[in-house]
Each structure stands twice: as structure tokens, then as C-alpha cells.
């Protein structure tokens, strides 16, 4: 069965003013959808047809990997954002952040630094390692920590220019400020608990 574009967990205008409805029109309605359409076209009639998205991401390469991973990355990213997001995490995730970076503020600085220096189209991720500790990792283009069995993705920010160019032009740091106002810590905490 062909993959379908998953529903956005909120309305397209729900993240404004931090991320505009126009950005989501394109980012979700065009970019994310194009990855889904292309993936379906590429896997049709191949051994990948009928497999789960995660299986395809973990076992493919080239165009199939790029499109499958981008479908997965974007769905994960939408859930990392929420109109009721922002603030700071609580509970076990907050404890793990403090254990690694000393404070939420120091974590945020480290994450921003990693994201600002992630060159070109890319993603910056908060991941949980096998020993339960946290780390920040950068990936390029469609690459995703999903293919690294030793880590669990906790949250991510999309750093392709299409994620912020309509709203913030070249100002990636300003987009990151907006991102922090939207982070869905409840979703991130659920991922951390996995």
C-alpha cells in the first residue's frame, strides 16, 4: 500500500507568528508531500513496496533513502512543534539535560551552536544514547539518526532553508529563537522515555 502524507498535528496557521501559515503551506503541503509522492513512485514494483517506512529508511540508499528519510524526518519534526510548546522540559528529560549540560540554558546554547554551524541543508537532533545520556548530533540532507541503532531521536530542528526562508530569509539564528518558542517538550519526553 502506498504511503500517505500524515496529517499535521495542528492547523497550518497554528504556529504563527513563529512559523507562518505560508511556510507550512509549502513545507508541509509541497515539500513533505513531494517526498511522499516520490517515495511511492520509486518503491513501486520493488522489494521495498509494502515495507514499513522505518524499514525502508534503515535498509535503502540513494533516491529511495532520501525520500523515505525525509518523509520520516518531517513527520517527526511536525510533532516536535506545538502551538502550546516552548518553555522548558520537566521530569526525567530535564534531569538528563542538566546531567549533560548543567542547565537548560547551557543546553540551548550548545544546541544553537551546533545548528548554526550545520552547513547547508541539514538537521540538528537531540538524541538519547544507549547508556541513557543525551547528545546533540548534526546530519546532512536527508540523513537521520533513525539509521543509528545506538541512539533514539528525541527532538529535531529542520535546517533546510525551505524551513525558514519565507519567514526569516538568511537569519537562521532568528528561526532558532522561533523554534524554541514552539518545542513540544511533551513529545520529546515521550521519545526520551522509549
Amino acid at each position: 500500500m502506498a504511503f500517505e502524507l500524515p496529517a499535521l498535528p495542528y492547523a497550518k496557521d497554528a504556529l504563527a507568528p513563529h512559523i507562518s501559515a505560508e511556510t507550512l503551506e509549502y513545507h508541509y503541503g509541497k515539500h513533505h508531500n513531494t517526498y511522499v509522492v516520490k517515495l511511492n513512485g520509486l518503491i513501486e514494483g520493488t522489494p521495498f513496496a509494502g515495507k514499513s517506512l522505518e524499514d525502508i529508511v534503515r535498509t535503502s540508499e540513494g533516491g529511495i533513502f532520501n525520500n523515505a528519510a525525509q518523509v520520516w524526518n518531517h513527520t517527526f519534526y511536525w510533532h516536535c512543534l506545538s502551538p502550546n510548546g516552548g518553555g522548558e522540559p520537566t521530569g526525567a528529560l530535564a534531569d538528563a539535560i542538566n546531567a549533560k549540560w548543567g542547565s537548560f540554558a547551557a543546553f540551548k546554547t550548545a544546541f544553537n551552536d551546533k545548528a548554526v554551524n550545520n552547513f547547508g541543508s541539514s538537521w540538528t537532533w537531540l538524541v538519547k544514547k544507549a547508556d541513557g545520556s543525551l547528545d546533540i548530533v548534526n546530519t546532512s540532507n536527508a540523513a537521520t539518526p533513525l539509521t543509528d541503532t545506538s541512539v533514539t531521536p528525541v527532538m529535531t530542528v529542520d535546517l533546510w532553508e525551505h524551513a525558514y526562508y519565507i519567514d526569516y530569509r538568511n537569519a537562521r539564528p532568528t528561526y532558532l529563537d522561533a523554534f524554541w518558542a514552539l518545542v513540544n517538550w511533551k513529545f520529546a519526553s515521550e521519545n526520551f522515555a522509549k
Binding site: 509541497k30 515539500h31 541543508s121 532553508e161 526562508y165 519565507i166 530569509r169
Partner: peptide, 12 residues
């Protein structure tokens, strides 16, 4: 072909 080269006018 960076998106910054065309996104304001041509988007995706």
C-alpha cells in the same frame, strides 16, 4: 541550487 537562490520567487 541552494534554496536561498530561488525560494522567495520560485519556492519549491
Amino acid at each position: 541550487v541552494w534554496e536561498h537562490a530561488y525560494y522567495l520567487q520560485y519556492q519549491n
